[in-house]
Design a binder for these strands. Structure first.
Lengths: 235, 235
DNA sequence: ACACATTTTTATCGAATGGAATAAATGTTA
DNA sequence: TAACATTTATTCCATTCGATAAAAATGTGT
C-alpha cells in the first residue's frame, strides 16, 4: 500500500472494514465511469466516509486505484489459479494432446466464471475493462503482468500450440495464434457495453454461461486440432 | 451536428478546415485519455485554436465527442462497406458454403486493415476502444449501432451459421457463436494497450498484419466448417 | 469600398476537483 | 479511568474545468 497515512501493521479492525468498503465502492465506480470520470467525493459519499479518508487510507486517488488493481488481481488469481496450476502441470508432463486441450478449456471455463458468474464478478470485470490510469504509464508494469492470470493463460496456450504443431509454428505466429484463440472468450468481456445489442441480453449467467462455455470449448478444440502436426499438409 | 453556433449550410472553407482539425486532434486525445481525461483546453491548444472555438463549432464537449463518433463511423464504413456489400449479396443468393466463408474472411480482412494498417487507423481504432461517454447513455443508440459496420458483420455471421448448420443451431446460440468467431480478430483491437506484452510489439502492420489475416482466416474457416450440418454427428 | 457574415479571440464566471491541515470522536490497552 | 493510538470529520486551499458573453479580426459578395 503506497504512502497512506494509515499503518497496516497496527490498524484497528474497524479501519480494515472501512478500507475494504472504500475499495469495493471504488471498483464499481471506476469500472463504470473510469478513473477520471469519478471524483474522490463521489467515492467517499457512496462509501459513507468523508473525502479525506481516501488520503488517510490510500494517500491519493492513484493509490486507491492501485489498491483496486491489487484487489482484482488477487481475486482473479483465486478464481483461475487452481485450473492454471493444473494445466501448467500437464504441460510439464507427458500428457496427451487431448488432456492438454481439455485442461486448457477448463482454464477458459474458470475465466468465464470469474468474468460472468455473479454481480460481484461483473463489477470486477468491468473495472478490468476500464483501465485508464492518470499517468503516461497507464499500464500495469510488464513484470506485474507477467505474474498475472492473463500472462499465464497466454503462455500455456503458446505451450500447447508448440506441442500440437511439433515445433513447426514460429514463436511469433504462436503468440498471435494464442491471442486469437483466447479472443473467442475474452471478446465477450471486452464487449460488455453492448452485449445487449449483439446477444439480446447483457448478463451471461446460468444457462447462458453454460452455453458460452460449450461454444468456446467447441471452437477452441477445433482450432487446436487444426494445428496438429500430422493434419492436412496443404493447410 | 448538434446545437453548434456555426451554421454548416453557409460556412466558410476556413471554418470547415478548423472544424476538421479539431476533430482529428480530439480523436487522438480522447482515444488516448478518454473523454474525462482530456480537457477542452487540451484539445484547443493542440488544435491551435482558443477554447471557446469548441463551443462555436460543436456547442459543448459532448457535441465534439459526437462529431468524433460520426467521423469514425463514416471512415469505418468507407473501409469495410464494399466487402460487407459483397458478402450480403452472397448471402442473398445461392452461393456455395466456400464462397460464403471466403467472403466472410474477406470482410474480416478489411476490418483488420481498418484497425491496424496505418497510424491514422490506429488513432481511430483507439478512439473506438475508449468509448466512455459522460452520460448514463454511454452507448451509441441501438438504432445507430444497427446501421454500423459491427452490426452488419455480426448479422452476416449469424446468416452464415444458419446456412452452414441448416437451421439446426438456435438463434441464441448463433448469436453467441458469432461473437466468439469475430472475437478472434477483435480481441487484437481490444488488447491494444498490452499488445507489446503478448506479442512483443505493438504495431500490427506489413508482414505482421498479413500473418494476422492468415491466422484469422485459418481459424475462422475451421470453426465455420465445424458447424456444417453433415459433419461429425458426435460433435 | 462597404455592408454583412463568419470566425477568432479575450475576459470572465461559477462549480468542481484533489488534496492539506487540524480538530474531534472513537478504539485499545495497561 | 486515563493515556495513547487510530479513525473520522470539518474547514479550507489552489487549481482546473466547461462554458458564456462580447469584442476584434477576417472573409465574402455587391
Amino acid at each position: 500500500m503506497t504512502g497512506a497515512r494509515r499503518k497496516t501493521d497496527s490498524g484497528y479492525a474497524r479501519g480494515e472494514e472501512t478500507r475494504a468498503r472504500i475499495i469495493q465502492v471504488a471498483l464499481a465506480l471506476f469500472g463504470e465511469h473510469g478513473f477520471d470520470g469519478v471524483s474522490t467525493r463521489d467515492i467517499a459519499a457512496q462509501a459513507g466516509v468523508p473525502a479525506p479518508s481516501l488520503q488517510y487510507y490510500f494517500d491519493n486517488k492513484e493509490g486507491l486505484y492501485a489498491a483496486c488493481i491489487a484487489d482484482v488481481q488477487a481475486s482473479a488469481m483465486n478464481a483461475v489459479g487452481p485450473a492454471l496450476d493444473n494445466l501448467e502441470r500437464l504441460l510439464a508432463s507427458e500428457a496427451s494432446d487431448n488432456q492438454l486441450i481439455d485442461g486448457y478449456c477448463a482454464v477458459l471455463e474458470s475465466f468465464a466464471d470469474f468474468l460472468f458468474a455473479s454481480p460481484d464478478a461483473a463489477r470486477r470485470a468491468l473495472f478490468i475493462k476500464r483501465r485508464i490510469m492518470p499517468m503516461k504509464s497507464a499500464l500495469m508494469p510488464r513484470e506485474q503482468w507477467a505474474k498475472g492470470p492473463g500472462a499465464r493463460l497466454h503462455n500455456c496456450c503458446i505451450g500447447i500450440i508448440a506441442r500440437l504443431s511439433g515445433g513447426s509454428t514460429s514463436e511469433e505466429e504462436s503468440r498471435m495464434t494464442a491471442v486469437a484463440i483466447n479472443g473467442q472468450l475474452l471478446t465477450f468481456h471486452f464487449s460488455r457495453d453492448h452485449l445487449d445489442y449483439v446477444l439480446g441480453y447483457d448478463e451471461i449467467t446460468g444457462d447462458r454461461l453454460a452455453m458460452l462455455k460449450r461454444i468456446v470449448r467447441r471452437q477452441t478444440t477445433l482450432v487446436f486440432k487444426g494445428l496438429k502436426r500430422p493434419s492436412k499438409p496443404q493447410r
